[in-house]
Design a protein around this nucleic acid. Structure first.
Length: 209
DNA sequence: ATACAGAGGTGTTCC
DNA sequence: TGGAACACCTCTGTA
């Protein structure tokens, strides 16, 4: 089995392209950032490509801006997004409050910092906890100080003995495990923002988001 | 075949 | 006060 460093060397350029795309998205149109919020709301327990397909279909049907909850739920279900009813509700709630988040999130982050912003997002965006708040921030170009601790990453961390075992309840230990992963990335000399894509590549054999 | 775990978690309830 | 337990939902892979 090749080491993480070897694998990273092999796919570094592909990862760099992806990370650059995240930055582009973050500095792009507010509507695109809103669509990324929809994506992150759809993602939990759901195939990432299904979540992405749902976003594209919502856009194609002009539902992302102002669709009824029921219509959005139908699209999510048809695209294979799990918990489609709840997630359609979350999208509706978030839209009424934070559809323009892309217009001010960068100033917000500059004024506070990424960690504070993640807390704020997890508290204020319906359907987001630490994991999805981190996912969103990474996807708009702020992945250097935070980790997306989903079950796959936790499994990788366990395999590489960064953590002894996967905790039953993440809430209490998210920051602690995150620190260990940040330290791990420093030891390897691999940018933290790339670690998530690298781990996913080792499991799935491709780079997605 | 039929069952059953697993899927890029989060919100609510209950003690 | 905080943690388990459960609901949300449906499809796929595996034995």
């Amino acid at each position: 089995m090749p080491s993480l460093i070897d694998t990273y060397a092999k796919i570094e350029s592909s990862i760099s392209v992806r990370l650059h795309e995240f930055e582009q998205l973050g500095s792009g149109k507010s509507f695109d950032i809103w669509c990324e919020m929809i994506y992150c709301t759809c993602t939990p327990q759901t195939n990432a490509k299904h979540a992405n397909a749902a976003v594209e279909k919502l856009k194609a049907l002009d539902l992302a801006d102002h669709g009824y909850v029921e219509d959005m739920a139908t699209v999510l279900r048809d695209c294979g997004v799990r918990f489609h009813k709840n997630k359609a509700k979350y999208i509706d709630i978030n839209r009424t409050k934070y559809k323009d988040l892309g217009d001010w999130i960068h100033g917000f982050i500059k004024q506070h910092d990424v960690l504070y912003t993640r807390n704020w997002l997890a508290d204020h965006i319906s359907g987001w906890g630490y994991k999805e708040a981190s996912h969103f921030l990474r996807n708009i170009g702020y992945g250097e100080e935070i980790c997306i601790l989903d079950r796959h990453i936790l499994r990788c961390l366990e395999e590489h003995e960064v953590i002894d075992s996967i905790p039953k309840n993440l809430n209490s230990s998210y920051m602690e495990i995150e620190q260990k992963m940040l330290e791990f990335s420093r030891q390897l000399g691999i940018p933290n923002a790339a670690m998530d894509l690298l781990f996913w590549y080792t499991q799935k054999g491709e780079i997605y988001k």
